[in-house]
Structure formats: structure tokens, C-alpha cells
Amino acid sequence: MMTVSLAPRWLRIFPAAAILLCACSPHSDNETDAPAGFDPARFVAPAAPLDAPQLASDYDVVDAMLALAGVRPDDDVLDLGSGDGRVLIAAARVYGARGIGVDIDPAKVREATANARRAGVADKVSFRRQDLFETPLANAEVVTLYLTPEVNLRVRPRILAEMQPGAKVVSEQFDMGDWRADEHRRVGDTMLYMWIVPARLAGRWTLTLDGHDWPLTLTQHYQEIGGTLGADSRVGEGWVSGSRVRFVADVDGHSRVFEGRLEGDRLVSTSGEHWQAVRAG
């Protein structure tokens, strides 16, 4: 009579494994309990909290974002929440721009880095794991965002304080609250918003016109400026776009239009009116 073994085939081929299985079995006599208070979760790194959901932009939206920003060769583009890297890879391949992408998810950073290498632009763009609220903004000519309304509002003060006048910000889907977009564009079901970072002009100036000095006080709300010239002449119709400025004020009973640009701590005329203004404090 043939004897048929009922043991699994792998035990018949590797009988030594049966000994190891017994030694390691939870029912083994050598079983030891975990120390009191032992928590294995302490040894597993938790997933980093996300400031915004991980949603990838459609490629036609990416193209429209970069076109809306007017990206130029050698621009430095900063993508906050860069995901798989598609925005910066397109900026490098299509426009010749450089870029840095930041994401809190290390897996996305690795994915984006590999995608840039495959696209042949690893020499132009790089990706890093970083909190977007700690990312320096001052050197970027363009910042791209696809975050949330709340995160946009949290990052807005840093954009206005740190970025250079004339730098551009493009956000997919979400605006910046009461900071009105300079341009917006719809691509399918997606709305894009673009802002030009305004020069910071609020404060006291000394304006020189026709050989006379006038105290000029400017107030500012994003792109809009107001204030007073001289004792009581109201500054009206004022706006600033990047480093360019325009406002109207009465001088000796005559309405004068002032157009100029910011150069360091001076406003210099760019129109027929020969005037300039220097910060007074």
C-alpha cells in the first residue's frame, strides 16, 4: 500500500522549515509577550499632514497657467505643492525656464525627480521635501499654486511681503480673497487667476515737481493707491502694477497726472511730467 503524506508539499521538500515554523509559531512554548506599554506605532513614521489635497492639473491647464504667467527663458518658477512635477517640467521644456518644486510628500518628490530625469530637464528643475510655508519666495519670478482657498489666504501675506514687484502668481481654481486678480482665464471647467505682485509704496514721500517739493503720503490696498499731496490735495485714480505707478492729484488748482516707476527708494517719471519722489521715512 502506498503511504500518502498529508503534509503540504513545501514541508515535504524543505523539512527543516517545519522545525523553524514550530520555533517561531505564536503557539510555541518559547513565546514571549511584548513589554508592557509597547506601542509599535511609535516606530512607524506617520504620513506628513497635507496642506492641500493631492490633485494633478490637467495638461491643458498646465499650458494655460504658464502662458498666463508669461513665463520667459531663464525665469525662476516656484511650484508650491509640486506633485508629480508636471508644471515645472513643462516650464523647462517649453519655455526654457528653471524651477524648484516643493511638496510635503517624499514619495511625490521622488516621483517628480524621476519624471524630470526622464524628460531630460533634471539640469533645470529640482524638487525638495519642504513645508510650503517655510519656502523662500524672494527669488521667484513666477509662483504657481493649486492649493485650497484657506492655504492661498495663509500664503498671501508672504507673497506680498517677500516677492519682487512685477513677479507673477498663478493659482488654479482658487482666488486670493479680496486681492483682486489682474487677469483670469477659464480652461474648460477650471478657472485660473493671475496676480502681478505690486511694489510696496505706502508711506511718506517727498515729491519734486516744477522745482517745488511737496509732501506726499500714499496709502495702499494691493494694486490700489490713495493718499494726499501737499496739505489737502487728494490722490485719486491711483494704481500700481509691479513697479509701475499712476495717480492723479491737484497741484495749485490744476489736475496733474503722475506716471512713473519705482527704482529703489525713488519714484521716477515715465511721462511728460518731469517729477520724482523720494521716500521720506
Score class of each variant (00 low, 15 high):
218 L>C: 09
40 P>K: 08
171 S>P: 05
184 H>C: 05
165 P>A: 01
221 H>K: 15
17 A>E: 03
275 W>R: 00
199 A>D: 09
24 C>K: 00
210 D>H: 09
256 R>P: 02
25 S>T: 05
156 R>V: 00
63 D>I: 12
114 A>E: 13
273 E>G: 00
158 R>V: 09
254 H>V: 15
91 A>V: 04
71 V>A: 07
138 A>P: 04
135 T>D: 06
107 A>H: 06
192 L>T: 03
273 E>Q: 04
26 P>Y: 12
48 A>M: 14
167 A>N: 02
145 L>R: 08
236 G>I: 12
242 G>P: 10
202 A>H: 10
203 G>C: 13
93 R>K: 14
113 T>K: 08
251 V>C: 09
192 L>Y: 12
74 D>A: 13
31 E>N: 05
199 A>R: 03
21 L>V: 06
118 R>A: 15
106 P>K: 02
158 R>A: 13
177 G>C: 05
232 D>L: 08
242 G>A: 06
38 F>S: 04
5 S>R: 01
162 E>Y: 00
245 V>M: 07
105 D>S: 00
113 T>C: 02
62 V>R: 04
242 G>S: 09
146 Y>T: 04
103 D>T: 07
150 E>I: 14
30 N>K: 05
160 L>R: 01
9 R>W: 14
211 G>R: 10
240 V>R: 10
61 V>T: 14
100 I>Y: 03
121 V>H: 01
150 E>T: 15
202 A>C: 12
86 R>F: 00
201 L>K: 08
126 S>D: 04
167 A>I: 02
39 D>V: 10
61 V>Y: 03
87 V>G: 01
227 G>P: 11
199 A>E: 10
97 A>P: 06
196 I>L: 02
276 Q>F: 15
120 G>I: 09
66 L>D: 01
41 A>E: 12
279 R>F: 10
151 V>A: 13
76 D>R: 04
54 Q>L: 11
233 S>D: 15
37 G>S: 09
111 E>P: 00
32 T>P: 11
163 M>F: 09
82 S>Q: 06
157 P>K: 02
59 Y>V: 13
216 L>W: 02
256 R>M: 13
179 W>I: 00
189 D>Q: 14
265 D>M: 07
162 E>F: 07
246 R>H: 08
157 P>W: 08
118 R>T: 14
71 V>Q: 04
180 R>A: 06
85 G>W: 05
139 N>V: 03
57 S>R: 11
248 V>E: 14
21 L>N: 06
259 E>D: 11
239 W>H: 15
43 F>R: 01
8 P>V: 11
11 L>C: 11
279 R>I: 11
115 N>Q: 06
113 T>F: 08
235 V>P: 01
119 A>I: 06
184 H>Y: 03
194 M>Y: 03
18 A>K: 12
189 D>A: 14
151 V>W: 05
126 S>K: 09
51 D>V: 15
78 L>Q: 00
43 F>D: 13
241 S>D: 12
104 I>V: 13
118 R>P: 01
132 L>N: 02
15 P>T: 14
147 L>T: 07
188 G>Y: 00
185 R>N: 09
72 R>I: 01
51 D>Q: 15
1 M>T: 10
28 S>F: 09
23 A>M: 13
46 P>N: 07
127 F>K: 05
223 Q>I: 00
234 R>M: 13
152 N>F: 07
